[in-house]
Every structure is written in structure tokens, then in C-alpha cells.
């Protein structure tokens, strides 16, 4: 199994940390992982993206031009990465701020209203975990138990009290995931 993922959105949305949690969780399952971020000007406010690869075997390139899954959190990223999903692949997006929804018919598209659900949960910051939960429902590359262990590893101890909230958010994402009908 090799899963090649791009997560893309605005800097500050938690794009890199979503990838990091996924990567840590992969390690907890004894998988090989690569986390390759866009760095530099992007992380200072513009668009940010991270490529995460989780595999049972040796990982070749950290740099990719097509992906099994794209997790899209803003319009610029949709414009950039919709076409980069492999045919038969998966595109998951949060509709908040998306004015041109994805149109491809040869991939599986899912919507996760993460921003709205996060506000309803009273903590807008966990929206990225809700979206991650949607992804893990579609592609259970790591178990929830290992995500919990991944969170313990990736978060400094002073934030460990936030882990239950994050896990609730991940479960929520799985519940509100919506498969978009193909036209």
C-alpha cells in the first residue's frame, strides 16, 4: 500500500499540522512516511501545502505531480490541485470559501463541512481535524487509535488535554462526510 496525499489551503489553517499528525500516525503503524511541506513565503500567510506519503515499503520521491488524494481547503488550492488527482483518486474539500466546486467526473469527490461543524462544536480551530476525520473515513490508512498515539507524539505535553477534543473532531468528520454525486 502506498498513499500519496496533497493537503492544501491557506497558511494558518493547520495544513502542515494535519499532515504531521497523519505522518506521526503512520509511524505508529510501522509504515514508512514522508512529509514534504511548501516552505518559505507561503507559510507567512499565502497558500500552504504539504505532500504526505504513507507506504508499506520504501518511498521513492517526496515530490509528486499527481496524487491518490487531494485535501483542499481553499479556492486557490482547488484551482491548482483538482487536475493533479490521479484518475479514480479522491478529492476531499471543505466548501467554505469555495466558489468553483470541483467538476471532474473521473475521480471520487467528497465534501466535509468542517468549518461549519467546528463553529457548531464551539472551537473553529479543530476544523482541520474534522476534515482529516472525513479523509480517514474514505481512506482508513491509519486507525483512530494510532491517530491518538500520533497526537501524543506530535503535540507538546502542555496540549495533551486537547487530544480528546481533536479525536471528537475526527469522529465528527467521519459522520458529516458527504459523497458528491457524479453528474
Amino acid at each position: 500500500m502506498t498513499e500519496e496525499i496533497i493537503i492544501a489551503g491557506f497558511g494558518g489553517q493547520g495544513v502542515l499540522s494535519m499532515g504531521k499528525i497523519l505522518a506521526y500516525s503512520g509511524i505508529m503503524e510501522d509504515k514508512e512516511v514522508t512529509w514534504f511541506p511548501s516552505y518559505g513565503p507561503e507559510m507567512r500567510g499565502g497558500t500552504a501545502n504539504v505532500t504526505v506519503i504513507v507506504s508499506d515499503g520504501r518511498i521513492s520521491s517526496p515530490v509528486l505531480h499527481e496524487y491518490d488524494t487531494a485535501i483542499i481547503l481553499n479556492q486557490q488550492s482547488m484551482d491548482k490541485f483538482e487536475q493533479a488527482v490521479k484518475p479514480g483518486g479522491v478529492l476531499i474539500y471543505d466548501p467554505n470559501g469555495i466558489i468553483r466546486p470541483p467538476k471532474r467526473t473521473d475521480i471520487n469527490i467528497y465534501k466535509v463541512e468542517g468549518t461549519r461543524a467546528a463553529i457548531e462544536m464551539g472551537n473553529p480551530k479543530v476544523f482541520n481535524m474534522i476534515v482529516l476525520g472525513g479523509y480517514l473515513k474514505v481512506k482508513p490508512v491509519v486507525t483512530l487509535q494510532n491517530v491518538e498515539r500520533g497526537l501524543e507524539k506530535s503535540l507538546p505535553p502542555r496540549y495533551h488535554n486537547m487530544i480528546p477534543l481533536n479525536l471528537t473532531a475526527i469522529r465528527k468528520g467521519g459522520e458529516i462526510l458527504e459523497a458528491m454525486p457524479k453528474p
Binding site: 509511524i27 512516511v33 514522508t34 512529509w35 514534504f36 511541506p37 518511498i59 517526496p62
Partner: peptide
């Protein structure tokens, strides 16, 4: 280079 410097792996 910056790619290997910035990327995380096991």
C-alpha cells in the same frame, strides 16, 4: 538541499 532539509521522514 532545502527539500531534504525541510522534509520529515522516519
Amino acid at each position: 538541499d532545502g527539500a531534504i532539509g525541510q522534509m520529515m521522514e522516519k
